[in-house]
Design a protein around this nucleic acid. Structure first.
Lengths: 111, 111
DNA sequence: TTGACATATTCCTATATAGGAATATTTTTA
DNA sequence: TAAAAATATTCCTATATAGGAATATGTCAA
């Protein structure tokens, strides 16, 4: 079996760095395809293909305005990702605390 | 060009659902491979291969104990994912607020 | 040393890309 | 109606899986 499709869920869709770049850019505001093309410095067909994947998993929404297609982020679709990572927050905070404790112990060694 | 390697970063590594399952399981405590095999109901070679990918991106750490290999989560490696998703938190909260407002408006329509 | 136990690796294959190039589609304007 | 502008789609190809099957490696116990 091959890898799961990029369109199977948000996790697979955002695995591609260029798609995260696009989402980051769209986080600021709604944008047309050509604005994305200019900002990302990617080929237009490539942008369109990435947008199709993002749309396939609901990460972006589109509306037409004249001959332009305006894309915007659907942040709700990122929530499952955020929530999954949050399950580990307690763990890394604990880890950070231990690192800090060790640092303090070596900064002020017992006299 | 093909898709980026699963070992290229944490984003690609956790795109695979079985690997998220394994991380979820390891979040509770350190486990041996056979414990993971039993809990996940996967073939042992499959588990070993997934663990190799997770280790490759630093999402898990291993130590040997006799003939067992004990794996545990390295939560710090999940942080970048959490932080990336957090960039969109403001957006979905805003979205939720608007949904709530609309619901209230239709619950109590103007008389 | 031999066998059992635990884990890792190799080989095989169907599948799904991502990018480049070329082209199609849709909409507006002259 | 034709040309231009904006975007989407198709075709092509190298590449990297994920799982199944078989096997290799490493470690302990008798």
């Amino acid at each position: 079996m091959a890898r799961a499709a990029t369109t199977s869920d948000a996790f697979n869709a955002v695995a591609e760095p260029r798609r995260r770049d696009i989402l980051n850019y769209l986080a600021m505001q709604e944008r047309s395809v050509s604005e994305i093309v200019d900002a990302m410095e990617m080929e237009q067909p490539s942008v369109s293909k990435h947008l199709k994947v993002l749309k396939g998993v609901g990460l972006v929404e589109v509306r037409r305005e004249g001959r332009q297609m305006l894309y915007k982020v659907n942040a709700m679709a990122i929530r499952p990702l955020h929530e999954w990572t949050s399950r580990f927050e307690r763990l890394w905070k604990h880890q950070l605390l231990r690192i800090k404790e060790r640092a303090e112990a070596s900064d002020a060694p017992k006299q």
